[in-house]
Simulated assay, not measured.
Amino acid sequence: MAAPRNVTATRDEEKGEDDDSPSAKKPKLERFPLNTWEFAAAVAVFFVFSTGLFCIYLTMPPAAYTSLKIPRTLSDLRLLKEDLSMYASNNPAQFILGYCSTYIFMQTFMIPGTIFMSLLAGALFGVVRGILLVVFNATAGASSCFFLSKLIGRPLVTWLWPEKLRFFQAEIAKRRDKLLNYMLFLRITPTLPNLFINLASPIVDVPFHVFFLATLVGLVPAAYITVRAGLALGDLKSIKDLYDFKTLSVLFLIGFVSIVPTLLKRKRVYE
C-alpha cells in the first residue's frame, strides 16, 4: 500500500511544480518586496521628513491649523485657497516655507495631490512666482524621491512595474549618447508617469545630473499650464480639462523638438 501513496504524492508534487495557474502564483506576487532593513530605512526617512514638516507647522498661528488640508478635489482646493489667502498675504515667508515643505514631502513619498498644490500656487502667487515655486518644488521632490529609490527602490519598482521597467531600461540603453534629450522628452510629454520616472531612473543608471537637468527644464511647460489654470480656478470644472487634445499636442510638439538632435544624429549614422 505504501507504493501507490508514494506515486500519488510524486504526481501531486509534479503537478504543483507545473501548475502555472494564477492561484499558484498568487502567494509569490503578494509577497512584500522590501526586506526588514529596507522597510526600516523607509520608515526612518519618512519619520525624519514628517518631523521636519510638523515643526514647520508649529510656527503657524493656531487659527491657520483648521484650514490645513491636502486638497483632493477642486472644491477642496477652492475652499483652501479662500482660507489661506489672507495668511499667505500677511505671512509670505512662513507660508512659502510650509507650502514648499508640503509639496516636497508629497513628491518624495509619492502622495497624490501635487497637481492641486500646483494649481494653488497659480491661484495665490500668479504666473511667474507660481511657476518658479512649482518647478523648484517638483525638482526638489523628484530629486529626493530619486535618492530614496536609489536606497530602497529596486525591489519595489521591480515588484510593481516589471514590464515597464524592462522597457525603460532598454530605451535608456539605446540612448546613452543623447540621454538628456530623451529624458527631456519623457518629462515634457505624458509618455511615462513622472512617479515611475522618479523611481526607476536610479535603477536603470540614469546619472543624477541628467535626471536633475531634465526635470528642472522639462517640467516648465506642464507647470505653466497648471499655474495658468490656477489663476482661473473658479472656472475650472475638472482636472481633465487641464490636458485636452490641444494641450497634449503642444506638449508632444515641444517634446519632439527636444529629441530632434537624437534623430538627426541617428540619421547621420545610418547614412
Rank of each mutant, 00 (worst) to 15 (best):
G98N: 12
K26I: 04
D12E: 10
F109S: 00
W37S: 13
R175E: 08
K26L: 15
T73Q: 05
L124D: 02
L160I: 11
F256E: 02
F136A: 13
F256G: 13
L80N: 09
P202C: 05
A93F: 04
F211I: 04
L233P: 05
F32I: 00
G130C: 11
L213Q: 03
P162F: 00
A9R: 15
G141R: 00
I70H: 03
G98Y: 01
L213F: 08
L236W: 04
F95T: 07
L242V: 13
S50H: 06
R166E: 13
Y103G: 05
R5L: 14
T215Y: 00
S144Y: 01
L58A: 13
V260W: 04
I254G: 06
D12M: 15
A44H: 07
F109T: 00
L264Q: 14
L124E: 02
I239T: 13
L119K: 10
F54A: 14
I131W: 02
F146P: 00
I203E: 04
F54M: 12
N137H: 09
G98Q: 08
P207K: 12
L80E: 07
S101I: 08
V260Y: 02
A214K: 04
T215E: 03
A93E: 05
A232W: 04
I115K: 04
F211E: 02
E271Y: 06
F212Y: 05
R266G: 07
P162W: 02
L58F: 12
D235K: 14
L84T: 04
V7M: 13
A170E: 07
L192G: 06
S201T: 04
S101Y: 09
C100F: 12
S89M: 07
K240S: 14
K240L: 11
T10D: 10
A42I: 11
F109Y: 01
F212P: 01
E14N: 11
T226N: 09
S149I: 07
M86T: 10
Y103A: 14
I96K: 13
P61I: 05
K81S: 15
T36E: 10
L119A: 11
T73E: 01
L263H: 14
A138G: 12
R176T: 10
